[in-house]
């Protein structure tokens, strides 16, 4: 019995170490300001997965709003088949984008409609143009955003809805000299609060093809879910395989424990 309690202590210690590391990481990143909004995401938890209809709405928000400034690197139009678009629909979506190609037989670069095999088109030809068009800041790639920020989906969602017209009291209390540089907007959740991207999501700026009401909250939920999928397209496979693997390991470890006890009877 004492061995078991020792084992439990070991496990707790390992868990304590890891939780400590994680908690400190989270602490280090949180600035002043309100806590992140935490919607009840469909992809949370051991059994979480994606809602394809929501992901398609999210793609509509991306291609209607975000697309004009933000790339989705490492993704291809063909990936959209994974969120329930048919092969023909994907072809149509791809063809609505122009992508650079070439050189042709005369040595000239040209543009052509994209095919499903093409990477999702970049909004700008290069970073210099992107900078020029966006007040000196390159709009970041969105395909890994949900992995690349502490807080992940919660952070993206909070940020999209986190704009304020005036600098709030708590910021001025912390720093009386705070003032927004020209061309920047105030955001509760952005580190330093001065964000280059103005507020994008306003009620009714687009129409959903499935007739959902395009409120700012709805669009933020949908596009954040879409970006979560863009960052972790493997999530559903991963969790499903994980459930089987854990179940299997628990059975195997149980058997090993029983067999080990049986054998060790001889030694006591």
């Amino acid at each position: 019995m004492s061995t078991l309690t020792r084992l439990a202590t070991a496990a707790m210690m390992a868990a304590g170490l890891s939780l400590g590391a994680g908690a400190t990481g989270a602490l280090a990143s949180s600035g002043d300001g309100p806590h992140l909004k935490q919607p009840n995401w469909s992809f949370n938890g051991l059994f979480g997965g994606y809602d394809e209809a929501q992901l398609r709405r999210g793609w509509e928000v991306y291609s209607g709003v975000c697309k004009s400034c933000h790339p989705l690197d490492y993704m291809h139009y063909r990936n959209l088949e994974q969120i329930g678009y048919t092969a023909d629909e994907v072809k149509e979506i791809a063809a609505s984008f122009d992508v650079p190609d070439g050189p042709d037989e005369w040595g000239e670069m040209y543009t052509r409609p994209a095919t499903p095999m093409d990477p999702i088109a970049h909004p700008y030809e290069n970073d210099a143009i992107a900078k020029l068009a966006n007040g000196g800041v390159v709009p970041p790639n969105l395909s890994v955003m949900a992995r690349a920020r502490d807080g992940g989906a919660d952070y993206i969602y909070s940020l999209l809805l986190g704009y304020a017209d005036e600098v709030p009291e708590y910021v001025l209390e912390a720093d009386p000299n705070f003032s927004l540089p020209p061309g920047k907007s105030f955001n509760h959740y952005f580190p330093g609060h001065a964000i280059s991207m103005p507020q994008q999501l306003f009620e009714g700026i687009l129409e959903y093809s499935d007739g959902s009401t395009p409120s700012a909250e709805q669009m933020a939920l949908d596009v954040t879910s879409f970006l979560q999928w863009a960052a972790e397209p493997e999530l559903e496979d991963r969790k499903a395989l994980g459930r089987y693997t854990l179940l299997f390991l628990i059975v195997l470890t149980g058997l090993l424990y029983a067999y080990k006890r049986e054998i060790w009877k001889d030694a006591h």
């Binding site: 299997f248 390991l249 059975v251 195997l252 058997l255 090993l256 029983a258 067999y259 049986e262 054998i263």
Partner: peptide, 17 residues
């Protein structure tokens, strides 16, 4: 027999895994 069962069960599950 209990010991044999545990040996074969554990061995089989481990090999499959």
């Amino acid at each position: 027999s209990r010991r044999d069962f545990l040996l074969y069960a554990t061995g089989a599950v481990g090999a499959v895994g």
